[in-house]
Amino acid sequence: MSDTLQLILEDTDGTQLETSCTRFAVVWQGREVWIQQAGNGQLLIGVDVEDSDTEYANLLLRPLATNLVSLQLEMEPIEADDEEHVHGPDCDH
């Protein structure tokens, strides 16, 4: 299975641009909301952390059947050594 996500970006005038990437973010309420594949057809949706945060918040979207999905919230504690962490394709953040 490929880690590539196929994206369709649409402007306000309806013009569409098709592209692909392994990970993308949307800036929402001043925070980066990252979306990437998590394997087995699942999407991992995580919010970028700030200095005052004590946990990572990740949403895992799983396909269940036709027109059905499962959404699970996963909270992970931020450890002191995570300050030096650089996000990469294998970190699942």
Rank of each mutant, 00 (worst) to 15 (best):
S2F: 02
T4W: 13
L5Q: 00
L7H: 04
D11N: 14
D11L: 07
T12D: 14
T12G: 13
T12V: 11
D13V: 05
S20R: 00
S20P: 04
C21S: 10
R23D: 14
R23V: 07
A25L: 06
A25D: 12
V27C: 08
W28R: 05
R31E: 06
E32F: 07
E32G: 07
V33P: 04
W34Y: 13
I35R: 01
A38N: 10
G39Y: 05
N40P: 01
G41H: 00
Q42N: 14
L43D: 00
L44P: 05
I45Y: 04
I45P: 07
V47K: 00
V47E: 13
D48Y: 08
V49S: 07
E50P: 01
E50H: 08
D51A: 12
D51M: 05
S52Q: 07
S52P: 00
T54K: 12
T54W: 07
Y56R: 14
Y56I: 10
L60F: 05
P63W: 06
P63Q: 11
A65K: 15
T66G: 10
N67I: 02
N67P: 01
L68Q: 15
V69E: 04
S70I: 01
L73G: 03
E74L: 13
M75Q: 14
E76I: 14
E76Q: 15
E76V: 14
P77D: 13
P77H: 12
I78K: 10
E79G: 08
A80V: 09
D81L: 04
D81F: 08
D81Y: 10
D82S: 12
H85M: 11
H87N: 12
G88Q: 05
G88P: 05
P89H: 06
H93F: 06
H93K: 14
